[in-house]
């Protein structure tokens, strides 16, 4: 991929590599501005940028990740994802086949998630100004049912659950980036959550307080944010946390708790205690949330917003690290 050779090259790039992949929708190509019909009068809008190294990792790539990340932000807010835009920032020298694979993957994921790609933009920047490629998306969804009321409505005694094993995406990317030869290698959970959210909302019958896809900072980050919103504390139980064998192995090697590691197809939810069993039962009947589990509950506020009861019985704080996890043992 070359940069700075004028408009002609860039246009050819766009025609050959990009437009051709997104001709399936009602729009013929990717215009600068899209016009869409909105039924109903509330829409949900989200925007996201994707920066991941390496671009391809076990379980996905930056293309599918961009679609899933965007779709999931809409889904957990209670919206039905409908449209997506794609903005590409490409580094000079990026191999065209890599770009092609990412775009194919983006298109396939969009198709799987039933979202239309409706607008786009492409920029090529000099070597070193980007790491391969950056993607930016905007997602638009429509709201039909009643979305969860939000974390501020969580009450003491409410139950926390996750829709599957945690920390898989972040661990997969980290291990791929550092070329750690692990057996089994962690695999990203990157996947759409639309169906899972639907099932969850239906099974809980209006008793879902909050849902969030546990991306950056993992389950811990979501719970810290919620704890501040509802002024309660959360207590987790280590024995109930679903962690896959690949993630557990990497976690021990790297000394990183999966609670802090990003998921891209796994959500956290807080539900009223009465519906927890039926919610888990419904989620477990779906293949994409068969590992759903109750992981803890909300309690009155204590000095620690989030704690975990370790297998040895200790009630340990789950701290929110400010940056890299630095040792505190002196």
């Amino acid at each position: 991929l070359a940069h700075g050779e004028g408009a002609r090259l860039t246009r050819r790039l766009i025609d050959d590599e990009i437009r051709s992949r997104f001709r399936s929708g009602p729009l013929d190509a990717l215009p600068d501005a899209a016009h869409v019909d909105v039924t109903g009068n509330r829409i949900a809008v989200t925007t996201d940028s994707f920066v991941v190294s390496p671009l391809f990792f076990p379980g996905g790539d930056i293309g599918s990740l961009a679609v899933h990340g965007t779709v999931n932000d809409l889904a957990v807010s209670g919206a039905t994802p409908r449209w997506i835009t794609l903005s590409l920032i490409l580094e000079e020298g990026l191999p065209l086949p890599a770009l092609g694979r990412v775009l194919d993957s983006f298109a396939a994921a969009a198709c799987e998630c039933a979202v239309e790609v409706i607008a786009g933009d492409t920029k090529v920047v000099p070597r070193g100004a980007a790491d391969g490629m950056f993607l930016n998306t905007t997602g638009i969804g429509t709201i039909t049912g009643s979305p969860p009321a939000g974390p501020q409505t969580i009450e003491s005694g409410d139950v926390l659950l996750v829709s599957g094993p945690i920390g898989r995406h972040g661990m997969a990317v980290l291990c791929a980036r550092e070329e750690l030869a692990l057996e089994p290698a962690p695999r990203s959970d990157s996947a759409p959550l639309t169906g899972v959210v639907e099932t969850l909302l239906r099974a809980a019958d209006g008793n879902v307080r909050a849902i969030r896809d546990a991306t950056r900072g993992g389950v811990s980050a979501v719970l810290h944010e919620w704890a501040d919103a509802c002024e309660l504390s959360f207590r987790l139980q280590e024995s109930r946390l679903p962690v896959s064998a690949d993630v557990r192995g990497a976690s021990e090697l790297l000394g990183i708790d999966p609670l802090y590691v990003a998921c891209e197809g796994t959500l956290v939810a807080a539900v009223a205690p009465g519906v927890a069993d039926q919610v888990i039962e419904s989620l477990c009947s779906r293949p994409d949330s068969s590992g759903a589990a109750v992981i803890g509950s909300a309690t009155d506020r204590t000095i620690c917003p989030v704690t975990i009861r370790r297998t040895l019985g200790r009630e340990q704080p789950v701290d929110e690290p400010t940056g890299a996890m630095l040792p505190r043992i002196c």
Binding site: E178, E179, L180, A181, L182, E183, L253, L254, G255, A324, L326, P327
Partner: peptide
């Protein structure tokens, strides 16, 4: 052996803290 190898990798990559 395997754990040893991956720990050497982890060290070579500087994953952890510099001290």
């Amino acid at each position: 052996e395997e754990q040893l190898q991956s720990t050497i990798d982890v060290a070579a990559r500087g994953l952890g803290a510099q001290t």
